[in-house]
Design a binder for these strands. Structure first.
Lengths: 156, 156
DNA sequence: CCTCCTTTTTAGAATGAGTCAAGAGCAAGA
DNA sequence: TCTTGCTCTTGACTCATTCTAAAAAGGAGG
């Protein structure tokens, strides 16, 4: 039998949110569940689509509001890849980086080797206060390598 | 006397473009000069503003068209940082990465140590055909660290 | 259960970056 | 000069995202 892969993640997320005193409404729960239940990173519109299957009355504005609240709380990471809309990544507890398909925009988590040995010499910091590093590998996903024209699919 | 720092870069760029058979019009020249003459990375709108000082009739669409042509030709790199509009980086000859101010959006070139030792193990490539890697250090630039409220300045 | 007050949701308008299309303007060659 | 083919401009358009104002839903106190 098939076990939904991220039930624990969803529960943990919901737990953390409740502990913060965040009022857990039906809409917010659905958005959180959709996000945490996926192993790929969705756009706001994709979240909206999936959320509507469970809660047809939900509005796009609420999806945006909820996503932004989650981002502000540090529970979700917002990733802009340049082509197309932002994508949302619920995996903030484990440090990781990304692999991005330049053709369809799909985004996956990866943990490159050597990321911890990456340093910016003080000489090159130009007086910046450093906060963190983002590493994005760019490439073409299997689906886009196969099919000539890459229909911007739901980010496999 | 003061020597404009990037005259050579501009000339080299213009040379390469002519060699490709790209018709060098007044508008295109101005856009190329503005881009290559800056040591920071400008948004399309900033390029437009600077270009208009030299050629007041130039239109924003032409700036976008020219920037996109330069990007397609591989002469300029397009960088989307997530907050705000894309920025354009004329330095494509030397491999480099970026330092991004999360507050005002300013973008600088850097060459972190250890970037060459960064690898994505095959196990984690998920069948992607890898093209390249983008490393972005995020932080706060001196100007934004100083002034409390960061006016989105012209990317110092 | 009712009332008051706050928070959340909603629909739709508004914004901003970027693109597109149609006509006007030029440059070069016949 | 005329034609042909780029290139430029204007303004309308798209798309992602945010804003606004009003309706709805909770929750606390009576």
């Amino acid at each position: 039998m098939f076990v939904e892969p991220a039930v624990e993640a969803v529960d943990a997320l919901v737990e953390r949110l409740k502990r913060r005193g965040w009022r857990l409404t039906a809409q917010r729960r659905v958005v959180a569940e959709v996000l945490a239940g996926e192993h790929v990173h969705l756009t706001a519109d994709e979240v909206y689509g999936r959320a509507r299957r469970r809660l047809p009355e939900i509005s796009l504005a609420t999806v945006y509001n909820t996503l932004n609240e989650l981002v502000d709380m540090g529970e979700v990471l917002e990733i802009a890849t340049g082509d197309g809309p932002k994508r949302y990544d619920p995996n903030t507890t484990v440090a990781h980086h990304h692999l991005h398909c330049v053709s369809c925009g799909a985004l996956r988590d990866v943990n490159p080797e050597g990321a911890d040995r990456l340093v910016l010499p003080p000489r090159q910091q130009h007086g910046f206060e450093l906060l963190d590093v983002d590493i994005v590998f760019r490439g073409r996903c299997p689906r886009c390598r196969a099919g000539a024209v890459a229909a911007p699919a739901a980010a496999g």
